[in-house]
Design a protein around this nucleic acid. Structure first.
Lengths: 262, 262
DNA sequence: CTGTGGGCAGAAGGCCGACAA
DNA sequence: TTGTCGGCCTTCTGCCCACAG
């Protein structure tokens, strides 16, 4: 994490280049203003990693992987028409049929009210209607409130998820614009840098916990790695100080215009 | 600055309870999103304060006080009508006559275009008109853009300043609502706390500079004090570790509905 | 002196199918 | 299959004064 050779940063000679930790808790959160997602993690450094410890670490990671909920979703990049005040949202046909509750086609036109929950448990209500010539699925009433509320622009994406309980969830993913003013105006970047290092060093020296925020979309590199992947990497290619690395994220498949789970 | 007795925070035994510093630079800035104001200060700890040093410190503070520009201003708390989309801004009569350029009363009705600059050097343009029965000063066209752009609500205040060059400046001051999510989502408060302390301790040990952000309206207490005031306090009442203190700010006179410099 | 509300005209929002890529 | 457009009606915006506290 050393950035400039500015040398205003104290060095932490007792802080190793890698710090093996137990993950005490992790909560997924998102910024109430921007919906940017991140994880809040409480970590405790482990000084001597015995074989037994390794197995505990690997087992706990396995447990984490177990409770993956089975969901289906679709993701669409918003067009100029989708974000304009002139109209609503045009839903890709296959996506609508797969994710939304089935319409009653005896109605003329077929229509229903949809409710979807976002990361802050806010419920958004949309009128879902199947009309036009040729016929297509549209979200009309309620859509513009969502667009303006989330300040979405053409190029940003929306995500509709149907979870295991058949509930609709709703997420957004902004296009890569300017790096959303993450350098806040309360702390110098030097102080931030020092704070993370000192917190980790202090926790390592005293066998205590420390808390970090892990923002996968904003961090320049991944500085937290699952132990299992780390093990695999160490026994495959040798890791050395300063080597750059990168992991594929499970969400990074959404490069195409419209994707869904098969 | 010690908060909870949580004891996850390392102690800095070499960091004294007060740190006398030279102020190398101070820039007044404001958050591009909220207009919240703060100062960015580069400080360098002084280890042994000799009489000569004290005089330098006091002299530099005197120099800072010299260049106070002579300005006039008025401040008005916004009413429901001021912030509604139904109309414009009703300007208190004496304030308008004192601050705004004089209207040409041969026009029917008397009106002009006003331009005012905010902290980000954005120019806001308003139509200033004197009309109605009874006659009053109003800002009409352009006002609603300002209100929505700054997201102002009834109860917030606006500030019009006429500077030494007869230019109009424009500021806002939000009502005391929730403490504007200053705890960002990138760093734990422990890390922030540690970061400031460690940066100060490192600078004190190495005779180097450190940078802090000083937000007078958000900080729970004033942690930067002009040396002259500190001296006066020390020779008057004795300061001791843990004693609480508070200074009056020059801007804190705006308790009344509408104020101006006499 | 100034905050609020009614009147009114023009701008913007928002639902619709047509059409074409 | 779906992005954009013109048509058309509704809602909102915003400038005016009256009136009252």
């Amino acid at each position: 994490m050393r950035k400039d050779a500015d040398a205003q940063i104290p060095s932490y000679p007792n802080l190793p280049s890698k710090l093996i930790c137990i993950l005490h808790s992790v909560t997924m959160e998102s910024d109430p203003d921007t919906d940017e997602v991140y994880a809040r993690m409480t970590l405790q450094p482990v000084s001597n990693v015995t074989q037994c410890d390794k197995e505990i670490l690997l087992a706990s990671e396995l447990a984490l992987k177990q409770n993956k909920p089975q969901t289906e979703f679709f993701c669409k990049t918003l067009t100029a028409s989708d974000t304009s005040t002139h109209g609503g949202f045009s839903v890709p046909r296959r996506a609508a049929e797969r994710i939304f509750p089935r319409l009653d086609f005896s109605l003329q036109p077929p229509a229903q009210e949809l409710q979807a929950r976002d990361l802050h448990d806010t419920i958004w209500t949309f009128r879902h209607i199947f009309r036009g010539q040729p016929k297509r699925h549209l979200l009309t009433t309620g859509w513009s409130l969502f667009i303006s509320g989330k300040r979405l622009l053409a190029g940003d994406s929306v995500l509709f998820i149907r979870d295991a309980k058949q509930q609709l969830l709703l997420g957004i993913r902004r296009a890569n614009r300017q790096p959303t003013n993450l350098s806040s105006s309360v702390l110098s970047s030097d102080s931030m840098h020092i704070g993370v290092l000192a917190a980790a060093a202090h926790a390592a020296a005293n066998n205590s916990q420390f808390t970090i925020f892990y923002n996968p979309r904003a961090s320049p590199s991944e500085f937290v790695i699952p132990f299992a992947k780390y093990q695999k990497a160490v026994y495959g290619n040798q890791l050395s100080l300063g080597m750059r690395f990168r992991m594929m994220f499970e969400t990074e498949e959404s490069g195409t215009r419209s994707t869904w789970v098969q």
